[in-house]
Amino acid sequence: MSDRSDDDILTVWYDGGCPLCLREIALMRRLDRANHIHFVDVADPAQPCPLDRQLLLDRFHARKGTVIYDGAAAFAAMWRAIPVLRPLGELARLPPILWGLEVAYRRFLRVRPILQRWVR
């Protein structure tokens, strides 16, 4: 029996139809040796969604306990769940750092369709 509760597991929703997302999630899975993250492919219609499916496809989301993170905050939460990335995730708790990461993430979202075509 596990000592971990559901509140200890971070749920991460990702776009399984996005080649960039698949590569990143594959890396995160390799780094998450302690299985602190439950990855959910939102592109799979059989998967339940706590929010609008399109919203989850358009923007990265994660949940720990009752807290839902999105955008850069979701990435930071994922990093904190992986020991080797935890320092980066802790750094992202600082408002100016998180703000800068969010600005970069929003810019990335604008070019994501172009990058996806290149990767396919």
Rank of each mutant, 00 (worst) to 15 (best):
C49F: 00
Y69L: 06
Q116K: 13
I25W: 00
P95I: 08
L98S: 06
R117D: 11
Y69T: 07
H36L: 11
A77H: 01
A43I: 04
L31S: 01
R4A: 15
V67P: 01
R112V: 10
E102L: 04
A77I: 01
E90F: 08
H61V: 10
L94A: 12
A26W: 04
C18V: 10
D58K: 07
N35C: 09
D58H: 08
G65Q: 09
A26Q: 08
R23F: 05
A77Y: 00
V119E: 13
L27N: 01
D70H: 14
L91M: 13
L115R: 07
A43W: 03
A26P: 03
V42A: 13
L91A: 15
V42S: 09
D58S: 14
W118T: 08
A74I: 07
F60Y: 13
T66H: 12
P95N: 08
I68E: 07
L85G: 03
V103F: 11
P95R: 15
A73Q: 05
R110N: 09
A72R: 05
R120M: 11
R63G: 05
D44N: 14
C49S: 09
D41C: 06
I82D: 00
L31R: 06
D15V: 10
L109I: 15
N35T: 03
A92H: 01
D7N: 14
Y69Q: 14
A73W: 03
H36Q: 15
L101E: 00
P113A: 03
W79V: 04
F39R: 02
I68G: 03
L101C: 10
H36M: 12
A26S: 13
V84D: 07
V111K: 05
R117N: 09
S5I: 02
A43H: 07
F39H: 04
E90T: 13
D58L: 06
D15E: 11
G17F: 05
I97W: 10
D6W: 02
S2Q: 14
V111A: 09
E90N: 13
Q47I: 07
K64I: 03
D8P: 00
Y14N: 05
D52A: 10
P19C: 09
A76Q: 04
L109F: 08
M1L: 11
P48W: 05
V42C: 08
V12H: 01
R110H: 13
R29P: 01
L51C: 06
D3G: 15
D15T: 08
H36I: 00
G100V: 07
D32R: 02
L22N: 15
L31Y: 00
R106S: 08
A43F: 01
H61Y: 14
I114A: 12
L56T: 00
D58Q: 14
A76E: 03
R107S: 13
A34M: 07
P19G: 10
V67Q: 12
L94I: 07
Y69A: 10
L115M: 14
A73Y: 01
C18F: 06
G71Q: 11
A81G: 02
D6A: 09
D70Y: 02
L55V: 11
A43Y: 05
V40K: 02
